[in-house]
Every structure is written in C-alpha cells, then in structure tokens.
Design a protein around this nucleic acid. Structure first.
Lengths: 185, 185
DNA sequence: GGTCACACGTGAGGC
DNA sequence: TGCCTCACGTGTGAC
C-alpha cells in the first residue's frame, strides 16, 4: 500500500503537460483511494461521537479546497489561455480538456463530501455510495417521523394530565372552601 | 423544448451497434433531461403528501428496471460473448466497452434514485445534486435531533406531572381518611 | 462563438 | 488470473 495518498492531492499540479495526444500521460496518475473512514465496518446508529468529528473536519477541508483552488485559480488560467490562441490546429481544444478535468474534480469532491456524511457504507464504489445514501435518507426520514409522532403522543398525554390536575385543583379548592365554611359554622 | 424525454429511455436498445469507431453513433442521442420533479420550486418541510407518492413509485420503477435488465440479461450476454472470442484483433475489447456502459448506466440509475429522494434540488447537474444531498442529510439529522430532544423534554415534564398527581392523590386519600375518622368520632 | 454538462470508448490498476 | 472500477480525453448537443 505505498500508493496511499490523501484526497486533496487530486487538486495539485494541474498547470503543464496538456498535450492533445490521447492516452500518453495517463500512466503517471495512480488510482485514488479513499481515506479509511468507515470502510467495511458496520456501525450501529449510536456511535456518532468520534467519527462525526473526524468527518466534519474532513468535509471542511474539502470545502475550503474546493472554493479556493477550483473556482478562482484554474478558471483565471483558462481565461488567459483562451485569449492567447484564437483558432489553431492542435492547441485549441486544450482548455476543453482542462474544463472537463475541473468538472470531474468537482464531482469527485462532492462524492468525497457525501462519503463523509453517510454512515454504514457497504462498498467502495460510487454506485454503492449512492445506494447507501438513498437508504440512509429514507432511514433518517423514518426516524424523524417516528420521533415527531412520539413527541406528539407524549404531548397529548401531558395536556390531558394538565387538564386533570386543573380539575383536581378545582376540586381541592372547593373542598377547602367547604371545609372552611363548615368550620365557621 | 421538443427534446424532452423520460428517464427510463436511457436503458433502452443497448444490444447492437457496438463498433469500435468512436464518435460515429453519438449524434442520435440528445442531452438527458430529468423529469420535472421539484425543479426550482422551494418546498417547505411540511409538504410531503403528494410528492412523496409520486417519487416513491418512480423509485420503484427505477429499482425494477435495474434489477431486471442490468443484473441478469446483459451480464449473461457478456459471458457468452467473452467465451466466443479468446484473443482477436478488434473484437476483444468490445465486452469491456459494454461492461463500462453497464457500469455507467447503473451509476446513472443511482443518480436518478437519489434525485427522486432528495427535495429542494437547486441545479440540474450531478454536482449540485450531490451538494444538495449533503445539505439535506445534515438538515434531516438536525431535525431528528431536535424532535428527539423535544420529545425528551416533554417526557420529563410528563413524568414530573405524574409524580405530582400521585402525591396529590396520596394527600387526598389522607384527607378523606382523616375526614372519615373525624366523622366517626 | 463560447460555455456547460454529459456520454462515450479506452488504458490502467486493484482485488 | 479475470473482473470491476476508475480517470482520462474527446465529441457533441443545448444554452
């Protein structure tokens, strides 16, 4: 496992080597691997004290990296390159390549952010991630619904008890009043 | 807007025309557009009676299509094609193409399913979808947490009131008993 | 005409 | 070993 590297390395050194020849510079890029957050480990729904902290800071790193590098630096570079060459034979579709690379990069960052938010991920591929995301959203919806209905039920019980207590207080007051009147006689 | 078509059209007619020449049959495929479910309309969190039904049936369609077509039919076809040609000049990487197509298709179905589950989608592209998904998950988490804590608070109040009522009942019983004894004298 | 987003085929690499 | 997933460059249609 010597090819392990972090997520933000995907956004590094994007300036040179933009030749239009296809499949030439493809071998220098290792396959990305995801940081070992909740890989193949089934968590119960109650273990969210430590992992949440780690994942939150991780998502913040992603967000900072995304809003700093992608949206300003690369786009300005693209603008400059575009104005230099109006229409040539081979250097024209280079910015298209870079734009596409940027789009892919952004999409992958969103995937990483999603991976940081969704627990109980069963697989490492993107399809499994999306599947688990749908499952998790439905689960959360059900939980919220259950908690809400339980809260409503308890609230109804509490209101009923409040009425009961008010009634009992009225009875007590009446008894006290009668007792006092009875004593005055 | 005459190029509007449904989602399940992406999964149709995948059998023939697998030539290795690139970019030939690409012009007959229009740009995919997503069904008009909650597009640019901001829903509040309380409107989930009609839209949920529509989205649920839609997700079921996706699920059925995926588990029927992708996992059995195409894979069996790939197995047969693979055993026929061991190593040839041009027909060998065709199954790779088809496998890749299948993978892309599956991933897109997951994207559609996610789009059916997540409300308040701000953009039509995949990156925005994932961004809104993360936002929605955090929102749901917060909602569940709030409902749970509210439920706990109301439950505590109810327990306190129950104790109070029991105490008052004891007092009443004591008063009744004393009154009875006082009357017997 | 330029931008954006997408699907496609393809090489590479991990399991 | 083959199977599967991924990133890449490219073509293309809609804005």
């Amino acid at each position: 496992m010597e090819w392990f590297y972090l997520v933000s390395m995907t956004c590094s050194f994007r300036s040179g080597s933009g030749l239009a020849g296809y499949g030439a510079m493809n071998s220098s890029k290792p396959r990305p691997v995801y940081p070992p957050i909740q890989n193949n480990i089934i968590f119960s729904t109650a273990t969210s004290s430590t992992s949440t902290t780690v994942r939150s800071s991780f998502a913040e790193d992603i967000k900072l990296e995304e809003s700093d590098h992608s949206n300003i630096d690369v786009k300005a570079k693209l603008k400059r390159k575009r104005q230099k060459k109006p229409t040539h034979g081979r250097e024209e579709p280079m910015n298209h390549v870079e734009v596409e690379r940027l789009r892919r990069e952004k999409l992958n960052q969103r995937f990483y952010a999603l991976r940081a938010v969704v627990p109980n991920i069963t697989g490492m591929d993107k399809a499994s991630l999306l599947e688990d995301t749908v499952r998790y959203i439905n689960e959360l919806k059900l939980n919220a619904e259950n908690a809400e209905s339980k809260k409503d039920a308890v609230q109804i019980q509490l209101n009923k008890l409040n009425e009961e207590i008010a009634e009992q207080n009225a009875v007590l007051e009446f008894v006290d009043e009668g007792e006092e009147q009875w004593r005055m006689i």
